[in-house]
Design a binder for these strands. Structure first.
Length: 495
RNA sequence: GGGGGCGUAGCUCAGCCUGGUAGAGCGCCAGUUUUGGGAACUGGAAGUCGCAUGUUCGAAUCAUGUCGCCCCCGCCA
């Protein structure tokens, strides 16, 4: 059987990824470097993700709000490590007017003080927190905002690394270290629940090494996923900021005893990069495959219109079938179904929906109307079309979606399991494995804990992705130095 | 930021070396025959050759600049 895509995953992963995005009509490059246009199907998936994430963020006691896109330069300057980390990728606004000069528009009227376009909002939200928080009664303060941010990236890639991207960023302030740490872990748990439970992308939760930490954080925790080329993708981060930003911005409260204390803050974020993770985890040589909770349409009905005479009857039957399916529920919501009435051939429509990743595709023709049957294609086995009684499909639609959902997770878990590389015991083994182009996957190995030795991995393009929260507790030898070590670390090539 | 490659129709690309006014396949549109695994045939529409400046009687083609994309290195919560 032919593949829907021209490029196979196994041949050129990077080109295949672009092809999946284009054929599924998710997004495209705009004329501006590193900026993308998100098309309706891509946006609908993002909305599904937003809905689920937003619900859990609110359920854990956070309120949404919105801060400005422009941040005064002076604010950014306050936290030294933060500036250091972000300075190289800032977009800066220096003028506020254009004037015609020799027929061209040129910037005029320089700003007295330049504004930066937010790369993240710790500083501007910290400044507000300093004004809002007076007493222990004002704590905890738990905020979230959905926004766009800009980081001037050198090598942009659709969804994975774009100069402008969309995300949610949570910012909280707490009276105690313990409470802030608990918040950091709670939100990482929320991320895990959405990414693993809804998006069906298996992740490893762990702490980042100092080298990979967020600039200005005391601890950075992350969920780390494995893509279908064996490379790691950081899918969400949650930071314990200690009192660094509190001290920089002067966020203080008066405790019960009347003493003035700095708060402890956290921040955490997930972005449109998750769409990239979704694509690279579940897609195949026929295009995108969407886990049902992320699918804007879970079932699509394609009417087979053979001649003018039977046309109306088939369309009528398709609409009625759609209504009966929509009356069924999956995961507590009505099943999302669409009857595809576009003036196009059934074959084109079918391949179109396959490439867009719709879980269940039905074909309904005159013969089916007469027999009360439907022809079902499940997205993970498109070669096996099943004819089954209409009533049976309607009754079983929820469990069919459930089975497909489970199959995606199982396949992703199986893939990851196969790419957990065993038998790497020394630095020589490590460089031998990752030194070759095909050398990918996750290596679980020991790390001595010395932050300065991590740089030695750069020659083979490997980094320590995280120190898993689930530690074995065993003793062994550091994969980099060979010294005795107890910390388990995930070594991998990353996006 | 350094090195290399590339921008020609919606997509993939030829033409450029040696300057002379635009091509192919796929897709798209129409008609006919078809039709439950990407239909066939015939005809047709579609491009200021990324943009700007220069050289020239004449630029897709040569030169310079610029924007964008890809690869390697660097950078990258």
């Amino acid at each position: 059987m032919k593949n829907a895509l021209r490029i196979r995953r196994s041949e050129n992963f990077a080109e295949w990824y672009q092809e999946v995005i284009r054929e599924a009509d998710l997004a495209e490059h705009s004329g501006v470097r590193g900026c993308m246009v998100i098309k309706p199907w891509g946006w609908a998936i993002w909305e599904k993700l937003q809905e689920r994430m937003d619900r859990l963020i609110k359920a854990t006691g956070h309120d949404n709000c919105y801060f400005p896109i422009f941040i005064p330069l002076e604010l950014i300057e306050k936290e030294a490590a933060h500036v250091e980390g972000f300075a190289k990728e800032m977009a800066v606004v220096t003028h506020h007017r254009l004037e015609k000069k020799d027929g061209k528009l040129v910037p005029a009227a320089p700003l007295e003080s330049p504004l930066i376009i937010r790369p993240t909002s710790e500083t501007i939200i910290g400044e507000a927190m300093a004004r809002w928080i007076k007493s222990y009664r004002d704590l905890p303060l738990k905020l979230n905002q959905w926004a766009n941010v800009v980081r001037w990236e050198m090598r942009p890639r659709l969804f994975l690394r774009t100069s402008e991207f969309l995300w949610q960023e949570g910012h909280t302030a707490h009276a105690t270290r313990e409470e802030a740490l608990e918040e950091t872990h709670t939100m990482l748990g929320v991320y895990r629940r959405v990414v693993e439970g809804d998006m069906r992308i298996p992740v490893i939760t762990g702490e980042k090494t100092p080298h990979e930490r967020f600039p200005g954080a005391d601890e950075t925790h992350a969920i780390e996923a494995m893509m279908q080329d064996g490379r790691a993708l950081q899918a969400g981060t949650s930071h314990f900021l200690g009192q660094n930003f509190a001290k920089a911005a002067g966020i203080q409260y008066q405790d019960k005893e009347g003493g003035l204390r700095h708060v402890f803050t956290t921040s955490w974020g997930t972005s449109t990069r998750l769409i990239g993770a979704l694509i690279m985890t579940h897609s195949d040589d026929d295009g995108l495959r969407l886990p049902p909770r992320m699918a804007p349409r879970q079932v699509v009905i394609i009417p087979i219109l053979r001649d003018e005479a039977g046309r109306d009857a088939v369309i009528e039957a398709a609409k009625k079938l759609g209504e009966r399916i929509a009356a069924q529920h999956f995961d507590g919501e009505p099943i999302r179904v669409q009857v595809d009435l576009k003036d196009d051939s059934p074959a084109n429509k079918r391949w179109g929906w396959i490439k867009k990743g719709v879980p269940l595709i039905l074909e309904l023709g005159p013969r089916d109307v007469a027999n009360e049957s439907v022809a079902l294609t499940r997205r993970d086995s498109i070669g096996e079309k099943r004819i089954l009684p209409m009533a049976e499909f309607i009754a079983e639609a929820p469990s069919l979606l459930e089975a497909f959902d489970q199959a995606l997770l199982t396949q992703a878990l199986d893939y990851r399991k196969a790419k957990m590389i065993d038998g790497i015991k020394t630095f020589a083994d490590l460089t031998a494995h990752f030194g070759q182009d095909s050398g990918t996957g996750f290596v679980i190995g020991k790390w001595s804990g010395d932050p300065d030795i991590e740089e030695r991995l750069s020659s083979v393009g490997v980094t320590i992705r995280c120190l898993p929260h689930e530690q074995s507790g065993t003793e062994g030898k550091c994969l980099i130095t060979g010294e005795p070590a107890t910390i388990d670390a995930v070594y991998a090539k990353a996006y």
